Simulated assay, not measured.
Amino acid sequence: MIVDAHHHLWAADAGYTWLDAPDLAPINRTFTPAMLTAELAAAGVARSVLVEGGRCDTDEAAVLLGHAADTPEIAGVVAWADPASPELASTLAGFRALPGGDRLVGIRAQVQGEDLDYLDRTDVRAGLATIGAAGLAFDLVVRVDQLASAARAADALPSVRFVLDHLGKPRIMAGAEGLAEWRAAIAPLASCPNVAAKLSGLVTEADWQRWTVDDLRPYASSALEFFGAERLMLGSDWPVCLLAGDYGAVRSAMLTALGGLTATERAAILGDTASRVYRLSA
């Protein structure tokens, strides 16, 4: 089963205030399930994972799970919740009771906007354990300088499944300096067997107008080196990727950047890893 392991859907004027930045005008509009399924069909993708979109309120979960309930292609939803909330367990139970709640596969918080040591906090660690105990993965959307704390959290919580989004958002435009910084930071996290990673979001960390496959290749090959295909999954980050390229072009570029893969490696990255880590239904 071919899976797009990371995409979003949102409606205009629905609380996604981060989209108000002038340079995000091309994606500051409504993206519907019908628009998504057209992209999936054109690319030969059978299933997808719908990820919270930075609205950062629990009411968004009902919308996303509702999309999943009505859209067979959406096999899983990663909803937003606050790991530090004392109401976290009841929030997760509430999500599961919603229409489409059986498609809930993970939780994400906007850690990239938090302090450097956010994932070291006792209350946050307790919340991550609650998420894991609920049978859910936790998506890590973090900065490069937060990868060390992510590694400490993953090491301290071996029973929790972590998924690193966008390879930790490396500074691709910084060239060799950015690559060296990222490789040193990601190695400890990759050494934790309970962490998988998404080959996603790289084109928007590069120059949006002038990126090439060569810009992406060192990160794709390093990810394969560090995680192995059995812990890597491919995600489009659509519609955010539209800032730098269309769905098909971005997907093709990432596969080209990976270079020659065995049939087993290709199957893992294109779907098997996402299906296993997120426990997607067939």
Rank of each mutant, 00 (worst) to 15 (best):
A197S: 12
V105L: 02
A253L: 11
L167K: 11
S159E: 14
Q146E: 06
C192V: 02
A97D: 15
T17F: 04
A249H: 11
R210S: 13
D4V: 08
D123F: 03
P86A: 09
A97Q: 08
R217S: 12
T273V: 12
V240L: 11
L280Q: 09
A257W: 11
D272L: 05
A184L: 13
M173F: 00
A97R: 10
D82R: 15
A126V: 04
R55N: 04
A223E: 08
A267D: 15
R55E: 06
D57L: 06
D145H: 15
L140E: 12
A81H: 12
P83H: 01
L92V: 13
D139S: 06
V163D: 03
V78S: 10
G228C: 08
G201N: 10
A156V: 02
V203C: 10
T262M: 12
A263M: 03
T37W: 05
A46Q: 15
D20L: 07
A41P: 02
G44P: 04
R121Y: 05
F227T: 02
H8V: 02
Y219W: 09
A154S: 04
I27L: 01
A34S: 14
Q110C: 06
L255A: 09
A61S: 10
A14M: 07
S221D: 05
A154C: 01
L140S: 13
T91D: 07
T130Q: 13
C56G: 00
V105D: 01
H166K: 14
A185S: 14
A154E: 04
R183Q: 15
F227I: 07
C192N: 03
I74R: 09
L19Q: 05
G259P: 11
P72C: 07
I2C: 09
G76M: 08
E114G: 00
S90Y: 00
E87N: 14
A220T: 12
V160R: 02
D13S: 11
D145R: 09
N194I: 00
A12C: 04
A69F: 12
R183N: 07
L147N: 00
E87R: 13
V77I: 08
V77L: 08
G106M: 01
A75I: 10
A184C: 03
E230R: 14
L202D: 13
G248C: 05
H6Q: 15
P170I: 10
D214I: 05
A197Y: 12
L216H: 09
A176S: 15
T130I: 14
A41G: 09
L19D: 06
M173Q: 14
L157F: 12
G15H: 05
T204N: 12
